[in-house]
Design a protein around this nucleic acid. Structure first.
Length: 421
RNA sequence: GGAGAAGUACCCAAGCGGUAAGGGGCUCCCCUGCUAAGGGAGUAGGUCGGUAAACCGGCGCGAGAGUACAAAUCUCUCCUUCUCCGCCA
């Protein structure tokens, strides 16, 4: 959520920033509602001050057993006016906050212009893309031949876009998860294991609601949502809190299963592990001081990349252009791993600085050196998507005979050097 | 799932229609070689508005609604915690 006062005082700058994302937003409405809100507040508060003074008088009169009927009658009328103002105020504030909650974040100045992913800017490329002396297989063909994935049965017990892992496949997924968590905790991130269902307030706090309700799975009998990412429960840990400034930056890592409706992506990535209704992910979350949150974004991105480096998987980092960024983000780097079956780099992590956009929704502050409360900055990034990492390991380390060499870093977790054979 | 109890500040806690007691802690001061003890004063977070500040005002007793001139106090709905019962990995 943008700061209402800032929006009203800088209408043109805000319009220009939002225009970089594409789409149009009716800010005139917001400004008009904000002005009306201030008017109503002034009217209502003046009467309330009078009422408070009169209440004290009435109490004093009653104590002295004197008649207060005239004053009470007068206050009765004022009370009716207060109610009218407050009713309109409530309507104005509801509309206003609903509008604000649907306006995306402003892109940071360093974010490149552009309308979609074709205009993202490559920042760096690491590792060597493998050249196979044989025709490499896709991870779904490899997986079926090795009997480590069972999609027909996943479809039977659940439906499309679900996977059953078995044997070495299940073990590999778990090995990768543990390797990621161990790496991040060794690097100063505190491990969190949060609930996989959250309430509406949490989904609103990180920005999934109210605008993107169709993308989430809602639980029918209690109104909870299945988490689309650990970002939601973990960032909301500190909702409505004033953090100790000395504790910043706070760094968390968390594994959760992630659940996404994938509305609107019918027909895309229908085979393999790339796009699932349920997938595993290890997430990194930071709470930072505003003055160095962009440094924290750089280091968070590096921390996510370190997983790919340790595994020996080739990847690149791209800075998303303004038109391709997520709703709440001020700046995003995607990390893309080389996926032989796609013959291109495929997103495996998205690292974002939200500045105070989420913190304002969630009311997350910290006490400054001069004792003032300021909004914290929140950041997060996948560290990494586990299923896509499994796919990348299988494809990049496959051998001509259909076996897969286990990367060195995973061997202690796998208890094996090779899958199959 | 059933029955009961409770939610007031950093902590404990009183108040149960008429401007939010008290204690601990914390901050400052006094008193003492130092410390401890003692004495005094201050201490309702936040947030919204006038307005950038001083200052003034609105809201605030778990959340939201209602009754009333006036709500921590009365009514309703919800949330959380605790106790007992039931069920359960």
């Amino acid at each position: 959520m943008l700061d209402l006062r800032y929006v009203c005082d800088n209408l043109d700058a805000v319009r220009a920033g939002l225009a970089r994302r594409g789409g149009t937003f009716d800010l005139a409405d917001v400004a008009a509602l904000a002005a009306r809100r201030r008017e109503l507040l002034a009217l209502s508060e003046k009467l309330k001050a009078e009422r408070n003074a009169a209440s004290a008088e009435i109490a004093a009169l009653k104590k002295e057993k004197k008649n207060a009927d005239a004053l009470i009658a007068e206050m009765k009328e004022k009370g009716a006016s207060i109610r009218e103002y407050d009713d309109e105020l409530a309507r104005v504030e509801t509309t206003l906050s609903d509008s604000l909650l649907r306006i995306p974040n402003l892109p940071h100045a360093s974010v490149p212009d552009g309308k979609d992913s074709s205009e993202n800017r490559e920042t760096r490329r690491v590792g060597k893309v493998p050249e196979f002396a044989f025709a490499p297989k896709t991870h779904w063909d490899l997986g079926e031949a090795l009997n480590i994935f069972d999609w027909p049965r996943a479809a039977k017990i659940s439906g499309a876009r679900f996977t059953v892992y078995r044997g070495a496949g299940a073990r590999l997924e778990r090995a990768i998860m543990n390797f990621m968590l161990d790496t991040h905790t060794a690097n100063g991130y505190t491990e969190i294991f949060p609930p996989f269902m959250v309430n509406r307030e949490s989904m609103t706090g990180t920005g999934q609601l109210p605008k993107f309700e169709d993308d989430a799975f809602a639980v029918k009998n209690n109104g909870y949502f299945l988490v689309p990412t650990a970002e939601v429960p973990v960032t909301n840990l500190h909702r409505d809190e004033i953090l100790n400034a000395a504790d910043l930056p706070i760094k968390y890592c968390a594994y959760t299963a992630c659940f996404r409706a994938e509305a609107g992506s019918a027909g895309r990535d229908t085979r393999g592990l790339i796009r699932q209704h349920q997938f595993n992910k290890v997430e990194l979350v930071k709470f930072a001081r505003p003055e160095n949150s962009y440094e924290e974004l750089e280091s968070l991105t590096r921390d996510a990349e370190s997983i790919l480096e340790k595994l020996g998987l080739p990847y690149r980092v791209v800075a998303l252009c303004a038109g391709d960024m997520g709703f709440a983000s001020a700046k995003t780097y995607d990390i893309e791993v080389w996926m032989p079956s796609y013959n291109r780099y495929v997103e495996i992590s998205s690292c974002s600085d939200y500045e105070d956009f989420q913190a304002r929704r969630m009311n997350i502050k910290f006490k400054d050196a001069d004792g003032k409360n300021r909004l914290a900055h929140t950041l997060n990034g996948s560290g990494l998507a586990v299923g896509r990492t499994t796919a990348a390991v299988l494809e990049n380390f496959q051998n001509p005979d259909g076996t897969v060499t286990v990367p060195e870093a995973l061997r202690p977790y796998m208890g094996a050097d090779v899958i199959g054979g």
